[in-house]
Amino acid sequence: MSRLQVVSGKGGTGKTTVAAALALALATEGKRTLLVEVEGRQGIAQLFETEALPYEERKIAVAPGGGEVYALAIDPELALLDYLQMFYKLGGAGRALKKLGAIDFATTIAPGLRDVLLTGKACEAVRRKDRSGRFAYDYVVMDAPPTGRITRFLNVNDEVAGLAKIGPIHNQAQAVMRVLKSPETAVHLVTLLEEMPVQETADGIAELRAARLPVGRVIVNMVRPEVLDAADLELVRTVERSSVAQALSAAGLGGARRGGNAEKLVDPLLDQAAEYAERYALEQEQRTVLGELDLPLHELPLLAEGMDLAGLYELATELRKQGLS
């Protein structure tokens, strides 16, 4: 199991949720994981129902069996100041630079620089060891930028090559790339069973593979329960309205005769089934496309009551059941 688990996905597919659930799943049985956020959205804090995360590693959850989840929201400006401090012992000058807007400037003008700082911080956490020589974290899970930008984000080496050919940032990029392209890393993509996210997932995987970044798994999120199966849907198309009315009536929903309460339910219920059938067909189509990607495929259920902390534990359990941790 790779120690750096990167989770990406099209916007709106719930990648932050999946990343958090994965961090929880990996933390069970006394393990310690770090959940890293890189886009400054404070999505992790929202999910775990805590106040905004500072730029420091902080315990945010306890997993079943005594494991711990830490979280870190990486702020690229502060990360750059960290580096400047590390390499140049800037002290007060660092603050002056910040005041001048130089830090903002530096992290803004060069998207590559920004990305090196973000991935660099995550890789540092992956490699960090405590005094006894044990890894500080068993796993690091990164809530990464969306699929459309993930390859560019992770492929910092190429990105920075054009900008910084020498110097500490260049060296940093090299070190980061060694971790990211190794089996130590796995990039997972979160999708929905809808046309656009699936297309974007397929494109993203092709890009990751072309950049020789290690693709992990595809996680289909928010999968609706199968209320009617293929056989039911076949029957929906041919069934007599009257026999459905009779069944409804038998179930205690009123008269089956024309105009009876049960009879009046038949059309709306069959309409809903037809809508379901249409979506079902589209979803099956997308499943086929995902199947052709030749990657381990996992499905997480849509939580009927919306996403909350309890739901997160539920998803973590599901991930464990499916062998993701």
Binding site: V227, D232, S243, V244, A251, L270, Q272, A273
Partner: peptide, 16 residues
């Protein structure tokens, strides 16, 4: 099978 289907239709409706 119609009963089974109808039960499914009702569950679908409950979800809705």
């Amino acid at each position: 099978s119609v009963d089974r289907l109808t039960a499914g239709l009702l569950r679908l409706h409950a979800d809705r």
